[in-house]
C-alpha cells in the first residue's frame, strides 16, 4: 500500500474516527495500530490523540475512537498497555464519565463503553494497578453501579496463558 508511506498517527486516527464513516473502518483502525508499533514514541503519542477524540462532542467520533482504543489494546502490546495504565490517560476517560467534568454532556453509549473497557482491563490486566484504582474510584463515586457484562469475544487476552500442570 504505497499511499500509506507518508501517513502519520494523526492522519490514521482522523480517518479511523471520521464522523462521515458509515461504519467502523478496520483498514484505518489497523493502520493506526501498525503505525504505533512502528514508532518509538507511538504509544505515548497515540494515547494523547485518542483521549482528544474520545472527548469529542460528536458521539460517532467518540465511539469510533473507543473502538480504536480497544483494537490498540489488543494489537499494540505491553508498551501500549503501560501508557493506558497511567493516570495521565485514565483521567481523560474518567473526565468523560464523571458528571463533575464532561459526564452530563456525553451520551450513555459513550460512557457505558468506557466503563466496559475499564472493567475488562481490570480483569485482563491485573498488573496494571492504576486501572483498578481508577475503576474502583468510579464505583465508590457511584458512577459505576455494577460491573458490566463483558462479551467473551471482547476480552483482551488473545490466548489463555499456559498453566503449569501438577505432575
Amino acid at each position: 500500500m504505497a499511499e500509506a508511506e507518508g501517513e502519520s498517527l494523526e492522519s490514521w486516527l482522523n480517518k479511523a474516527t471520521n464522523p462521515l464513516n458509515r461504519q467502523e473502518d478496520w483498514e484505518y483502525i489497523i493502520g493506526f495500530c501498525d503505525q504505533i508499533n512502528k514508532e518509538l514514541e507511538g504509544p505515548q503519542i497515540a494515547v494523547r490523540l485518542l483521549a482528544h477524540k474520545i472527548q469529542s462532542p460528536q458521539e460517532w467520533e467518540a465511539v469510533q475512537a473507543l473502538t480504536v482504543l480497544e483494537a490498540c489494546m489488543k494489537n499494540c502490546g505491553q508498551r501500549f498497555h503501560n501508557e493506558v495504565g497511567k493516570f495521565r490517560f485514565l483521567n481523560e476517560l474518567i473526565k468523560v464519565v464523571s458528571p463533575k467534568y464532561l459526564g452530563d454532556r456525553v451520551s450513555e453509549k459513550v460512557k457505558s463503553k468506557i466503563i466496559e473497557l475499564l472493567y475488562s482491563w481490570t480483569v485482563a490486566l491485573p498488573d496494571e494497578s492504576k486501572i483498578k484504582d481508577a475503576y474502583y474510584m468510579l464505583k465508590r463515586q457511584g458512577i459505576v453501579l455494577s460491573d458490566p457484562v463483558i462479551p467473551a469475544e471482547s476480552t483482551l487476552i488473545p490466548s489463555p496463558p499456559a498453566r503449569p500442570k501438577n505432575p
Partner: peptide, 15 residues
C-alpha cells in the same frame, strides 16, 4: 530517573 519523576507526577483525578 525520568521514569521515577513521571511516576511521582502521575495522580488520579480529584473527585
Amino acid at each position: 530517573l525520568g521514569e521515577e519523576s513521571e511516576e511521582r507526577d502521575d495522580h488520579l483525578l480529584p473527585m
